[in-house]
Design a protein around this nucleic acid. Sequence first.
DNA 1: TTTCGTCGGATTGTCGGACAACCTGAGTGT
DNA 2: ACACTCAGGTTGTCCGACAATCCGACGAAA
Lengths: 224, 224
Amino acid sequence: MVTVPAIDRSSTTDRVAEALRAMLFTGELSPGEPLREVSLADAFQVARSTVREALQVLAGDGLVTRYPHRGVVVTELTGDDIAEIFGARLVLESAGVRAGSEGADLAPVAEALATYAAATAGSDQAEITHAHLEFHTSLVSLLGNARLVANADTLTGDLRLALASVERRRANARQQVADHRRLLRLMKTGDTDGALSELDRHLTAARASVHEQVRERDAVSPGS
Amino acid sequence: MVTVPAIDRSSTTDRVAEALRAMLFTGELSPGEPLREVSLADAFQVARSTVREALQVLAGDGLVTRYPHRGVVVTELTGDDIAEIFGARLVLESAGVRAGSEGADLAPVAEALATYAAATAGSDQAEITHAHLEFHTSLVSLLGNARLVANADTLTGDLRLALASVERRRANARQQVADHRRLLRLMKTGDTDGALSELDRHLTAARASVHEQVRERDAVSPGS
DNA sequence: TTTCGTCGGATTGTCGGACAACCTGAGTGT
DNA sequence: ACACTCAGGTTGTCCGACAATCCGACGAAA
């Protein structure tokens, strides 16, 4: 068996969905912004039905919301939504931490942390956010359960909608990385309870931070 | 504000998806069975594009699987899939049990158990399965997190694909209900660890049962 | 001034038809 | 046994169409 260059077998629908997803994560599309089928079809040079399918994929992930007969808009997360996302993440990532303390290989987590630390040296905010969330996903990966990882991915994906629209302070980056290092160290030393409470603390702080930033944004341009 | 009778505002796509979902859960459609777009469009008397959208919804839930350029088939769960589903359920439902032992109101769980017990008196297998899974979902509901409940719902939905194709032994029903009663009692008495290990035991046994039944089925008509 | 119809434009939801690309299996030849 | 070709069925994507629905504006009526 020879190795061959991968051939792109993605459908047009997939590519449109992916392009939209990228635009959502970079903040090129803001929460609440309407996504008109004909405009998108025109912009992407594809048929309206193709756009509709792509939008339905994104709607399935909760990134966009369909309002019957009124169209699709970029999902606007309420404060309750954000609280729910962090609550769900705590459940999944805590389970991951427990799995890690029960013998799962921590190397992928360490690797994700290194990537994250490296990313903070750069200035690409979307890249930093991605690497950060990747670390948290790596915790869930410790469970070796693809379905839970997928759930965690959609959760962090939804969260990125809120993160993209606010400027994360670079100053926090160093502090953040230190937080994660501490968490990993606790896991390595087998201090499960310590790691769990550190994770709880970290997520609670992050939630507060996102909450605050969303409130600030809404104060300027009030949403729903 | 007066109360008005609810008006059906569902789209054709939704209704087709719902009809297909019901057929999947009752076993009218079996795992591996191909779902041809034109046949379905003809059968439901709707356009092909409508069927495509409905199928994409179901694919998003993992109930059907798209094979590019080859069509959609009812998802066939492998042994690994089943193990994953039960593993994920253990994570979510354990978290629910913990929430229950920390003061969450157990009334909905008790209610779900009563409904389940009542259903076992009847002979509608799909109804019994539904009530059973509803009980487990009620555990996750204790977390008060709609996103996690949704995740649990898709997990149990996927599981129903496997359950629908095998005849569950009625004999087990009584034993099953007793299991759940014991679990609820442990939660009520505040014995969190006992409840958690009871849940683990129950899910492990259930997984073994499903595994065995799937193996039996595959021995008759081998799948992939 | 506020409330209530109504009207027109814009958009979605659904339909039908069309066609190229693709997959599969059967047949054919080597 | 293997490689090739061909035909039929199916999906992926496009286009055009039209009813249903929503929304804002405008004007009439209370």
